[in-house]
Amino acid sequence: MARIGVVVFPGSNCEYDAAAAVEQLGGSAELIFHSATSLGDLDGVILPGGFAHGDYLRPGALARFSPVMDAVAAFAAAGGPVLGICNGFQVLTEAGLLPGALQKNRGLTFLCQPTTLIVSSTRSVLTRAATLGAELVVPINHFSGAYTCDDETYASLVADDQIVLRYRDNPNGSRDDIAGVANEAGNVVGLMPHPERAMSSLLGSADGRVLLEGFVGVGAAAH
């Protein structure tokens, strides 16, 4: 069974949803407080959504200096699967584990709505179980979700197949409709939409399952 750690920063608020999703998919989830200096024996780490450290300064700017982030960086460098969802994505970009940055939405509105995503690469730990080009309905819930990067970074994202998910109808002004990116190796992924909130068609969509199945499955395969 895959053991997935879910990091809890002061101000995280999606850690229980993420943990519940992991367990629905047959993994075991363990909450890890931000002051932890080691991760223990894990198969994957999720940085959940919320407002880590109140989002003061910039989303993710202070969370990046939480003690646990050194352990997360070491885990990622060793090839461990790391997934940042929403605020977790912002933390990963601030920490330099993913390229680019998340800026205030075009139009300066907080967006809370279902979006249709297009799977743009299956080379990452999040999208490896999905079908290239598939459309997935997954909700977003953010104020700073406009993906931004310079031209050089963008060119390398395209060249190295690091853009994993795009919005079909760009809701927030993200460059090239980018909703999620991976690092070059594909083991660190961040996305603004919330796949853990799309786990059941009774609650609107079950399209998040194929994404998290892939992520949890990476860990399961390790055993």
């Binding site: 300064l57 700017a61 200096f65 970009t93 940055a101 800026q103 931004t148 990067c149």
Partner: peptide, 8 residues
Amino acid sequence: RLLSNPVI
């Protein structure tokens, strides 16, 4: 290091 994000 902290007050700004050099990416943007």
